[in-house]
């Protein structure tokens, strides 16, 4: 219990620190005194702080938290530490929606809507296919993988008949892009992610039991099929909102839950809380890095999470004595 409180406090402290650091760094460097008087500040500085930087910081934190929490739960219910928020086909659907939006020339405002609709489309397909059979882990994974292949083939088909510049801008979006952050979008994503995480916490003990397999779960009084349905829909809505607002950011959803599980075990209540906080910190730092390192050009944040996360993971893997990823 003591260890958990310590981890929780350090993560919250780190999150606050990350917020401050990310607020200061950017194309325009904001000094501490300017920051402290941000409320009275007028004109351009006020706009940069309140309309651009804060929504983006909060969006990056929400997306990081949402992806890490979804990853933690999906790894649990699919009983596979290699699962991630995109395993069940949601990224394929979102990418399909985004591709359509870009190719049709629908503006930046329409893209999240299209991506979210695409995500819902693939989730509904996966749900329907899995429901046709007994709603189980294996039918979910199978239909998710099939849907992913189907959508990526369709996307390639669209690419092959589209102009190069449209392909390029879709590809950049696909690698993760938080630059469309603004207050309204951030608020919507906050609604999905925070409500979703609450639902996941509500079912955390069921997830603990589902890791023992559907048969044993039934013997411990858990209705596996209906728990799976609720958890699948919840993680899908969280992931869908994350992907629609910021593209397909990899690595956060797979590596953060791994890391936290290694630190404090597989019980999902703590795992979801700690993963959310760690995911928020990680993605916010990665995004700050992505938008400042070669300013004025912005790197896709997915590239940064991949490189930073990959290097960090390798070092951790080599240093840790008892790493087993479980």
């Amino acid at each position: 219990m003591k260890k958990n409180t310590l981890i929780l406090l350090s993560l919250i402290l780190l999150l606050a620190l990350t917020f401050a650091v990310s607020l200061i760094f950017g194309g325009t460097r904001i000094s501490l005194s300017e920051l402290l008087s941000a409320n009275q500040a007028s004109g351009i500085m006020h706009t940069i702080i309140w309309k651009i930087r804060i929504p983006r910081i909060i969006l990056s934190m929400l997306v990081g938290a949402g992806l890490a929490a979804s990853g933690a739960i999906l790894q649990g219910i699919l009983r596979n530490p290699l699962a991630e928020p995109y395993t069940l086909g949601i990224s394929g659907g979102a990418a399909f929606g985004a591709t359509i939006a870009v190719v049709l020339g629908i503006g930046a405002l329409g893209l999240p809507v299209f991506a979210f609709l695409g995500a819902l489309l693939s989730v509904s397909f996966v749900y329907l296919i899995a429901s046709k059979k007994y709603f189980s882990v294996s039918t979910l994974v199978l239909s998710g993988v099939i849907l992913s292949f189907l959508f990526s083939a369709v996307i390639m088909l669209i690419f092959s008949v589209s102009r190069a510049d449209k392909v390029q801008s879709t590809l950049l979006w696909l690698m993760g892009d938080l630059s469309s952050a603004e207050t309204g979008l951030t608020a919507i994503v906050a609604g999905f992610v925070l409500t979703g995480i609450l639902v996941l916490l509500l079912f955390s003990r069921e997830v603990d039991i589902l890791t023992l397999g559907e048969e044993k779960a039934a013997y411990l009084g858990v209705d596996a099929a209906s728990a799976l349905k609720i958890l699948f829909i919840t993680t899908s809505l969280i992931t869908g909102a994350c992907v629609a607002s910021s593209g397909i950011i990899g690595f956060v959803g797979i590596i953060i839950p791994h890391f936290i599980r290694q630190l404090r075990g597989p019980k999902h209540f703590g795992l979801v809380i700690f993963s959310s906080l760690a995911g928020a910190i990680f993605l916010c730092l990665a995004d700050t890095f992505a938008r400042t390192i070669i300013y004025p050009v912005e790197l896709p944040v997915g590239v940064i999470t991949g490189i930073l996360g990959g290097l960090f993971f390798i070092v951790f893997l080599l240093k840790s004595k008892s790493w087993d990823g479980m």
């Binding site: 530490p81 890791t211 599980r261 019980k267 479980m326």
Partner: peptide
């Protein structure tokens, strides 16, 4: 209470 023949527990409880 039921103990099935095979119980595979993938995580380190």
């Amino acid at each position: 209470a039921v103990l099935p023949q095979v119980l595979d527990v993938p995580f380190s409880f």
